[in-house]
Design a protein around this nucleic acid. Structure first.
Lengths: 235, 235
DNA sequence: GGTCAGGTGGACGGTGCCGTCCGCTTACGT
DNA sequence: ACGTAAGCGGACGGCACCGTCCACCTGACC
């Protein structure tokens, strides 16, 4: 599971020793450049959230009020820009993930973890792409991923042992759930969010080891029309 | 729900009286043209199934062994080609849908309907796009759709009345489920298919009005890695 | 205030796709 | 056999995007 992908901490000690250290630490930048960098990131977040990861780079540049060259100077490739734009979200993910691991009630931890991740997944268009693919070229993916996966397996096992998850629940069901939720990401957020919640509720009720004879309540079902991916173009 | 979109029956009586009658009836074509038309459709099915609806038209033409112009002559726009390519699948959908409506056991009817649709959704890449969007410009969508929706609501209501579906089940949960399953469509078919089955099982167990105290068995969980949309390029 | 590395923006070449145009080919009727 | 209309394919113009290049600014430091 691609949680806690290495996120830039703006900490000089975390300089990337790898050859791919294209994104120099913002602290070294001239203040105007630093300001532009921020503007680009802000614009990138907005544009990618609204239009998805396929949005043209020039749109981001225009929205940031800078030229394309400036943007490419900081983020030499599209992937780099994407990774940087979603970096803090990824970091937040990592935090939530650690909170979940620390939760004494594993079932509750797992639920809140997935609830939060799914919310982001469905609210921020384009986050799904970054989250799912993880940009093997841009970020050192493998280690963090393996670590997250191990933690997740452990959490799941704890929840099973506690009698909160059915015996035949599998760690692989979590990517499954994530993928399923990301299928809702194309909808406009105001329907996608309740939809995701409802789906999550359905699934969690199914995940229980001992379901009650009458199923628990569901969040409301949003009306949704499937026609088209619903670009929320901000001009 | 976009089931049973108007599918060409190759029946002369079904001539489109609308202005959009660009796709002349194959019977009128010269035999060589007719043959080429079939070749194009076959190639389109293959290419779109393997690469998704974004595949370039020229790829289809090349695979069919015809020039681009030939292709565009028959299918003046990309949408037309897509619609035509998935026409029979859509027709099959309609058949399955009617079978489901006719099933004396509404719960069983609903399950098999969704099982089949989901299988197609996950097996044929690109079918999801066509199925979900339904091409309002190309096909007369509204009537069929409304009809399907009404039938579906009726089926759901029957299943609820029969005590097979929980009271708070909503017709809108079906698009929800479809969307969720289509989220798996990016995976390679050999993992996507079992994944879809498992997801469907989880959900249906949750849909039951009176779940058993021990949940029923699940189909196996496939290992899946989320990294990337997994183009299955057939060269 | 001068100099210059670092920063900037717009213009540019490259690429991949769409959908059309036009001159050649082929099947069918006489 | 031959004329004609239908069919054909490659080449083409247009467009959108990517990523680079270069000539012009600007802020920090002497």
């Amino acid at each position: 599971m691609p949680d806690e992908i290495s996120h830039n901490t703006d900490d000089p000690a975390s300089a990337a020793p790898l050859g791919t250290a294209v994104d120099r630490r913002p602290a070294d930048l001239r203040p105007d450049a630093r300001r532009n960098r921020e503007r680009v990131l802000k614009a990138a977040r907005e544009v990618f959230a609204a239009q998805g990861t396929d949005a043209p780079v020039s749109t981001v540049a225009r929205r940031a009020g800078v030229g394309v060259a400036t943007l490419y100077r900081r983020f030499p490739t599209r992937s780099a820009l994407l990774a940087a734009a979603f970096d803090d979200q990824l970091g937040e993910c990592a935090t939530v993930f650690e909170e979940a691991l620390a939760d004494p009630n594993p079932g509750h931890g797992l639920y809140t973890l997935l609830e939060k991740v799914c919310t982001t997944l469905v609210t921020d268009r384009g986050f799904d792409t970054v989250f799912m693919t993880g940009f093997p070229e841009t970020l050192d993916y493998g280690r963090e991923r393996a670590c997250a996966e191990a933690g997740l397996t452990h959490l799941v096992q704890r929840a099973i042992d506690a009698g909160q998850l059915r015996e035949d629940f599998d760690t692989a069901d979590i990517p499954l759930l994530l993928l399923a939720v990301s299928g809702l990401a194309g909808q406009p957020p105001e329907t996608a969010l309740p939809a995701a919640r409802r789906l999550l509720t359905y699934l969690f009720q199914s995940f229980q080891a001992h379901p009650p004879s009458r199923p628990g309540p569901l969040p409301p079902a949003p009306r949704m029309d499937l026609t088209g991916p619903h670009r929320t173009d901000g001009v």
